[in-house]
Design a protein around this nucleic acid. Structure first.
Length: 621
RNA sequence: CGGGGCGUAGCGCAGCCUGGUAGCGCGCCUGCUUCGGGAGCAGGAAGUCGGAGGUUCAAAUCCUCUCGCCCCGACCA
């Protein structure tokens, strides 16, 4: 009863505020001319959503199939729904975030001079046969036949299609440079889909393709994309790092990956603590430092049962870094003896690249013994059979003396000097944290985990030559276009954002890609006063272009708090009778957890102020 | 593709070994109470036990085959 009396007394006060806040009667919908024009765009696509009328079902328990945090939270927050392995529906909440990422990508791509188009997702095999990839792409390419039995595939990427367009449309150097992009659903029949959106089979990707007349121009196109990518991920509010990368099978000479930094990242990246060199561990160079040890005479010693570097090191009292390990790899019929320091890992990517990216496999111990007479655990580079190709890591070639296997069970050599080791000197060892940077020769590497969300490639003329994408230069002679390709995993970026921004309670959206800006919680939805207050807050916030998710459901307060934290919108406005009796509402910042009681009259201004602090209204970074 | 695991109500699971009535928690619907951190009580709806074949008087349960999903290793946005 008491509350009722207070409520009535309050009502006039609230109505007064409403009139001043919206400039009209609260029940009146604002006419368009009352809207701040700069916010019209966001209003068009983002009306307030009432939870009672929205498709958003959250769950308390973590679904068992989800092992990474983004997958768990997206399922719990009702963002995605699995349809088949690696194939997900984006439910409304997720779609809103996705659209925001797409919009940032569009704006920055357009600003960088790229032109949007949309290519078919289903592609005829002819183009792929022409580029040579129908044969080599393997099972990852989802192939299908139409009713006339013609071969098609669902596009995992669009080099072929875009090159086909360009060869038909571009004739003169005057038509170049050209950079075409699209945002589209791709399908790659991954060997093992996992981690929800992080490694799905169907995913949304922005792919861009540049065509230039010569190398300097192609390099400018590449640089423009590199810069655009930096702006894109900054605007998404993510901590990221561009790194030099391995070009892998797509080929090409020059490539960077963009990684969102997160503990759960699948890639290791190394960055110099002094200069700006950073690279994927697969690709990272290092400054070779000579490892010397006390000279000792060359001799064979017995090392009974000491197979591992650890055992040998302990047994002979020689540090692992002065021991030498020899790994037997196989490339086709060729057997490779790969020598590197005992404390260093082999970089398989580097090894593969010595063989044009062909697969290499470790030789199993039984085969090594039976076919080549080499006892695994005691293999060394000295007196290897002629049929075996020895590869020696540069680190070995410059140091010594070393301890190494004697190619005889239970025996090692000690006092081995570098000139005793025959073999081709190459870079085989994997760089690791603490190694010296080769660029500035001053700093040392630190290690991070990263999620690859973007990749820029300089492709060269591989596709344009094969598919005849040529133009006439100023001299009238035909030249192949120099190509580049540039991808951003849009749906993966959304997942990566969550991997980087969460706590025990749920997601913490960066404002720029949050599905809504504000979560308005009506704690007493059956009370007329809270209803009216919320309605008018909604109107006032909308008029400022602020996107509101309004929890008007008939649920208990605790339930709504948990839900709001799980969904993780940047700000929560909490409206309850308790606060309204003092004429206040509460504003809670999701990331800091900081709560503030503010007078109703100042609530919208305070929300705007807090949103601005989170980066609201900053179009460009 | 190799290795492992799991398919029973929308979700999480028990039941299976030792064949015979399909069960629990969450969620959902109704009512009452409750109401600032995922409420309580009472009532209710909901399952071709992944599919096919077999054994049996009788199969969620035993056998065979199949499909799907998840996890661990080699690929990639």
């Amino acid at each position: 009863m008491k509350i009722k009396v207070n409520a009535i007394a309050l009502k006039s006060h609230v109505l007064e505020w409403l009139a001043s806040a919206t400039g009209s009667h609260p029940n009146l919908v604002l006419a368009p001319e009352n809207l701040d024009p700069i916010h019209l765009k966001s209003r068009e696509i983002c009306c307030t959503m009432r939870r009672s009328r929205y498709l958003l079902n959250t769950v308390k328990e973590t679904p068992k199939e989800a092992v990474v945090i983004s997958h768990q939270l997206m399922l719990r927050a009702g963002m995605i729904k699995q349809l088949a392995s690696g194939i997900y529906s984006f439910l409304p909440l997720a779609l809103r975030s996705l659209r925001k990422i797409e919009q940032i990508v569009r704006e920055e791509m357009n600003a960088a001079g790229a032109i949007e188009l949309l290519m078919p997702s289903v592609q005829p095999s002819e183009l792929w046969v022409e580029s040579g990839r129908w044969q080599i792409y393997g099972k990852e390419l989802l192939r299908m036949k139409d009713r006339k039995d013609n071969d098609f595939c669902y596009g995992p990427t669009h080099e072929e299609v875009v090159t086909d367009i360009v060869r038909k449309e571009v004739r003169s150097y005057k038509d170049l440079p050209l950079n075409l992009y699209q945002i589209q659903t791709k399908f790659r029949d991954e060997v093992r889909p996992r981690f929800g959106l992080m490694r799905g089979r169907e995913f949304i990707m922005k792919d861009a393709y540049s065509f230039d007349v010569d190398d300097p121009s192609a390099d400018r196109s590449y640089q423009a994309m590199y810069d655009a990518y930096k702006r894109i991920f900054s605007r998404c509010g993510l901590a990221f790092r561009p790194v030099e990368a391995d070009s892998g099978l797509i080929g090409g000479s020059y490539t960077h990956e963009f990684h969102v930094l997160a503990q759960s990242g699948e890639d290791e990246i190394l960055s110099c603590d002094q200069c700006d060199y950073a690279a994927n561990v697969e690709r990272c160079e290092r400054q070779i430092e000579t490892r010397s040890a006390a000279a000792r005479p060359f001799e064979k010693v017995a090392t009974p049962g000491k197979k591992s570097i650890e055992d040998v090191s302990a047994f002979l009292n020689v540090p692992a870094e002065n021991c030498l390990k020899t790994l037997l790899y196989q490339n086709g019929e060729t057997i490779l003896a790969c020598c590197l320091a005992g404390d260093r890992e082999l970089n398989e990517t580097a090894l593969k690249n010595l063989f044009d990216g062909e697969e290499v496999f470790l030789v199993d111990p039984q085969t090594a013994q039976e076919k080549y007479g080499l006892p695994i655990g005691f293999v060394g580079p000295i007196d290897l059979p002629q049929s075996i190709t020895a590869l020696v890591d540069r680190e070995i070639a410059e140091g010594g003396p070393w301890v190494c296997g004697a190619n005889q069970v239970d025996h090692h050599f000690v006092g081995v000097t570098a000139d005793q080791i025959r073999g081709k000197i190459v870079n085989l060892g994997q760089t690791r944290a603490g190694d010296r940077c080769p660029r500035c020769q001053n700093g040392h590497f630190t290690s991070h985990r990263g999620i690859e969300v973007g990749h820029v490639f300089k492709l060269g003329t591989k596709y344009s030559e094969r598919m005849g994408a040529t133009f006439l230069d100023a001299q009238g002679s035909s030249q192949p276009c120099i190509m580049g390709c540039y991808g951003i995993g849009v749906s993966r970026t959304m997942a990566a954002a969550i991997e980087q921004n969460f706590d025990e309670q749920g997601i913490i959206w960066p404002l720029q890609i949050a599905p809504f800006h504000v979560n308005l919680l009506n704690l007493d939805p059956s009370a007329e006063l809270t209803q009216q207050t919320c309605d008018s807050l909604v109107t006032a916030l909308e008029a400022k272009g602020i996107e509101v998710l309004y929890d008007d459901r008939d649920e208990r307060p605790g339930f709504k708090f948990k839900d709001a934290d799980l969904i993780g919108l940047p700000l929560q406005i909490i409206v309850g009778m308790r606060g309204l009796q003092g004429g206040t509402v509460e504003i809670k910042a999701r990331r800091t957890g900081q709560r503030q009681q503010v007078a109703l009259a100042g609530a919208v201004d305070e929300v705007i102020a807090q949103l601005q602090e989170l980066g609201w209204g900053k179009e460009r970074v």
